[in-house]
Amino acid sequence: MLSEAVESYLTVRRACGFAIKSEGSLLRTFAAFADARSEGYICAATAIEWAGLAESVFQRARRLGAVIRFARHARAEDERHEVPLPVFGREKAPRPVPYIFSEDEIRRLVEEASQSGYRSLRRRTYSTLFALLACTGLRVSEAIHLRFDDITEDGLVIRCSKFHRSRIVPLHDTARAGLASYLEMRRPYAPFDDHVFISLRRKPLLIADVESAFQTIANRIGLPHQPGLPRPTPHSFRHTFAVRALESSPDSRDRIARHMLALSTYLGHSTVSGTYWYLDATPSLMRDIADRCEILVTGVQS
């Protein structure tokens, strides 16, 4: 039965370091669907029918993609397994264009956060958090999981974040001073919890807490939020940090390559291609790319 083959496949994937929680759930559902038809081997038609039960095209593509990967693995040992064609197209929707903050918008967000809410700790928590996100490019999940011991002389220790990688993020003296000032107020409030950022419930912040606070503040200062246009979110701090860092890249080809690699490592990307995606984020970066291409082709420095 396919259920046993699925469990064997998931065991192998996990041994290779993949979490595959949602994909595992999908494959178990597919195996039950096939087992109900007494199919001991993957049938392409059955897989497509099962995937087609999802509501959206992207969900169907994602379902079928999970089966395709499983089928390739299974077929390596038994050719009676069929590998379906990706008839529903891409598994992932195109990455949305990121919202890039101006310096003035970041300043206004931090200032409004420092005045938002009826308790001073909440105000300091979100103004400090937003300022830290803006000056370090941390993921929101990384920031809210920071512990006291993660603040070191060398910078912030980001432990086993996305892609199971740890790294050190240097801190400017002003950022270090801002964190120290916040912690002086925060420590007595929840002395038995060592998370840097906590809520008024005396518990670590949740991503939903951050998103809710951000949207309230963004609405108050009038950040644009129109259908079809880039939408400001807490993750936009990271996008903005990456784009500004790219805009400061040196000119020569070798130095650009080193700059991109360093930035990719700093941001905690699994591959440098994740960093190159930011190159199409702003008109100024696109102009820089066009200028470099012209110099490369003509050999003439403007």
Rank of each mutant, 00 (worst) to 15 (best):
W50D: 03
G52W: 09
L53H: 07
L53M: 09
L53G: 09
L53C: 02
A54T: 06
E55F: 11
S56C: 04
S56A: 08
F58P: 00
F58M: 01
F58S: 10
F58K: 02
R60I: 10
R60P: 04
R60V: 10
A61N: 05
R62E: 09
R62V: 09
R62H: 13
R63L: 04
R63P: 06
L64C: 05
L64R: 07
L64W: 04
G65W: 03
G65S: 14
A66T: 04
V67Y: 07
V67R: 01
R69F: 01
A71L: 03
R72Q: 14
R72M: 11
H73V: 03
R75A: 15
R75N: 10
A76P: 02
A76I: 03
A76Q: 14
E77H: 15
E77C: 12
E77R: 14
D78F: 05
E79Q: 12
R80F: 05
R80S: 10
R80K: 13
H81C: 05
H81N: 11
E82C: 04
E82M: 05
V83G: 13
P84G: 11
P84K: 08
P84W: 15
L85M: 13
P86E: 11
P86T: 13
V87T: 11
V87G: 02
F88L: 07
F88I: 12
F88G: 02
G89H: 06
R90H: 11
R90K: 12
R90Y: 08
K92G: 02
K92V: 05
K92E: 14
A93H: 07
A93P: 03
P94M: 06
P94C: 08
R95V: 10
V97M: 14
V97A: 13
Y99M: 01
I100M: 02
I100G: 00
F101P: 01
S102M: 08
E103W: 11
E103R: 12
E103M: 09
E103C: 08
E105S: 06
E105W: 07
E105L: 07
R107E: 14
R107H: 13
R108L: 14
R108E: 15
L109K: 05
L109W: 10
L109C: 08
E112K: 08
E112V: 11
A113C: 08
Q115S: 14
S116I: 00
S116D: 10
S116A: 14
G117A: 09
G117R: 05
R119G: 03
R119M: 09
R119K: 11
R119L: 11
S120Y: 08
L121V: 09
R122V: 10
R123H: 02
R123T: 04
R123S: 02
R124W: 06
R124G: 04
T125G: 05
Y126S: 05
S127L: 00
S127H: 01
S127Y: 00
S127D: 01
S127V: 00
T128D: 01
T128Y: 00
F130Y: 04
A131N: 13
A131Q: 14
L132I: 10
L132P: 04
L133Y: 06
A134D: 06
C135Q: 12
T136S: 12
G137I: 03
L138E: 08
L138Y: 06
R139D: 07
V140E: 13
V140A: 09
E142H: 10
A143G: 03
A143E: 07
I144Y: 09
H145K: 15
L146N: 04
L146E: 03
R147G: 01
R147M: 03
R147K: 15
R147D: 00
R147W: 07
F148R: 15
D149M: 10
D149S: 14
D150N: 11
